[in-house]
Structure formats: C-alpha cells, structure tokens
Design a protein around this nucleic acid. Structure first.
Lengths: 165, 165
DNA sequence: TTATACTTGACTGTAATAGTAGGGTATTGC
DNA sequence: GCAATACCCTACTATTACAGTCAAGTATAA
C-alpha cells in the first residue's frame, strides 16, 4: 500500500481548493503558503490531478486551479489514486504471481484489505470534508494566520522602503 | 501508513508457522524455502516477533520457532505492529503538529482511516486465515512442490555420488 | 508587452526497505 | 566431548520511491 505524504498533500491541497472555490481560481502559490507545501511539489501533484480531470487550470494573471466537478462528486479515493498509482496492498500488484508464479499464502487477505480501504476512502467526498467542524476550525485558523503574516509583510515593506530613501 | 513487503512477509511467515505447528518447531530454513523469503531477512523479522512475544524459539538441532499463543489469540494487526513501528497514517505520527505547530486540514481524516485499518486487521486471527479455503489450497500446492523438489534433490544426490565413484 | 501563473522535464538528497555477510551462542545426539 | 543444527546479533550494501529543487518554457489577462 502506498499512502504517504504524497497522497496526503494531494488531498489537503484539494480540500484547500474546495474551501476557497468561491473566490475564483486558486493559485498554487496561495495553497503553498497556507498548507506549507513546496510550490514545485504542488505543481507536480496538480499535473497529475489535471490529467485525472479532477481539476482544471486557468492560465494568466488571476489564474489558478478550479475543481472540474461538484464538491460531492469528488471522492478521496480518486485523489489518492490520481497521484499514487494505486492503493493496492498486495505484493504482486494484484497479478497473483507472488509465490512461484502463483498466488502466495496471504494474497487474498491483502486483496480484502485493499477493497476495505478503497471502500472507506470512496465513501468520503470533498463536500463531506468541507462540512466537518474540525476542518472549518483549521481553515479559520489558517486564514487568521495569513492575515497576521500580511500585517508583518506590510511592516517589512515599510521598513525596506524607508531604508531605500 | 507503513504496509509493505516487510509486514506482508511477517504475516505470511506466521501463517506458515501456524499451518505446520503440529509438526513441532518450524525452522526458518523451511519457511524460507516454502515462502521464498530470504533466510537472513526472516531472522530479522522473527527477532522482532520474538520481542513482541508472538513466537518462542527452540534452539539446537530439531529446533525452530513456535507460536507462543493459541491461533485464535494472535491477530494480524499485532504481527504488522511487531515488525513495522505503527500503522498510523497521519503526517505527524499522531502528534498533531502537522501545520504550523497545529493540526493540518486533513489530520482527522487520516486518523479515522488509521482506526479503520487497524480495526479490520485486528478482527482477523491466524485461526481465521488457516480456516480459509484459498489458504489451504495454496498450502497444499506448496507441499506438493516441496516434495517434487525433494525428488529432484534425491536424483542430484544419486548423480553426484555416482560421479564420485 | 509585461507580469502572472501554469507546464514540463531533468535533476538531487534522503530515508526506509530489502537483502547480504559473517560472526557468534545454545542445544541436541552421537 | 564434539560436531551439527538452528537461533541470535550486528554491520553493511543496493535499491527504490518519496520529497524537493531548478530552470526552462508557454499561454493569457491587464
């Protein structure tokens, strides 16, 4: 099974996109700042998300990414699938040649688990996550922190411009 | 989450041990042959399984490993836990400092998934696996293959000893 | 036409897995 | 006793995938 930072980053970024969807296209630079994910890394992830047609891009100034479907039509499993190859947990990637060209002792066990995980992540949509209270709390906190940073940014600008004089 | 060949090997080996439990202590060399797992690697895994008190060792000729509990008292989650550190899938290892020292947007989602996986693997015992038809079939196949190899081994012995004359 | 922001590909550091090697120690049976 | 068996332990290596960087593009809105 492959469920690492990669898949988690993708889901987090997509959730960020969902939350700020009403403000028009969201730039990766914004997501990068809010979620503390490297911009270049986000670019790679969104390249895959775009190929899986989960997001659409808008180029140029004011551009960014948009969800290409409704919030309740995008499921976590799809996002994880888009950036990882699969969430198959068998040794042989489902081929069934894990022991001497035939299946190994535990092949079906891992197959069952794969189904289980997929079922769980397929049952949760972005709409479900956005509606969660803990998600809303974290989002609010991030917004406050960003405003705080903006203030500090202003002050730095003042200082540096006064130095320029 | 960490569910790789390591954990799968451990479960496969423990299942092999379960199936051959009636024949007395099972040597790692036998498991290595049957399940196609490197002997040295098995030794490392069983060192951890022993420390977790899932198996007990018998030294000397005719020795090997035995389960230290009944088949229905050992669960897959325990085996995976013994060789991997955890089956936690959050970014922060459950610490909750994944975003700016506080939890990230998707922290609770991954926590939920961790619980789900753990619950699934905790619900399956070695006894359950041994009782499965597909497991019995694979085990039978492995036994036949080993007898076949033994025959070939005999023939090689005959040839080499005749050459020695 | 310029700044913005997406797009792409090549490249690198790092960490864990997967596997190897080689030394031990305990125990049994001759 | 001593040789064979099989566990026990440590250090080492190769590989792989993730995670991240860098640098060059292209499309588009203002």
């Amino acid at each position: 099974m492959r469920l690492t930072t990669k898949g988690r980053y993708a889901v987090t970024a997509m959730l960020d996109l969902s939350i700020h969807a009403s403000e028009g296209p969201v730039s990766l630079a914004d997501i990068s700042k809010r979620q503390e994910i490297s911009l270049s890394y986000l670019e790679q992830l969104f390249s895959k998300l775009r190929k899986s047609e989960l997001v659409a891009s808008v180029r140029g100034p004011g551009g960014g990414y948009q969800l290409s479907r409704a919030l309740d039509a995008i499921f976590i499993a799809q996002i994880v699938d888009a950036v990882n190859e699969s969430i198959d947990v068998t040794n042989c990637n489902g081929k069934g040649n894990c022991n001497n060209g035939e299946i190994c002792l535990t092949h079906h066990l891992w197959e069952d688990l794969s189904v289980q995980i997929h079922k769980f992540l397929s049952g949760i949509s972005l709409a479900d996550l956005v509606a969660r209270k803990d998600v809303q709390q974290v989002s609010l906190r991030q917004q406050e922190q960003q405003e705080e940073f903006a203030h500090i940014g202003d002050r730095i600008n003042v200082i540096s411009s006064s130095r320029l004089n």
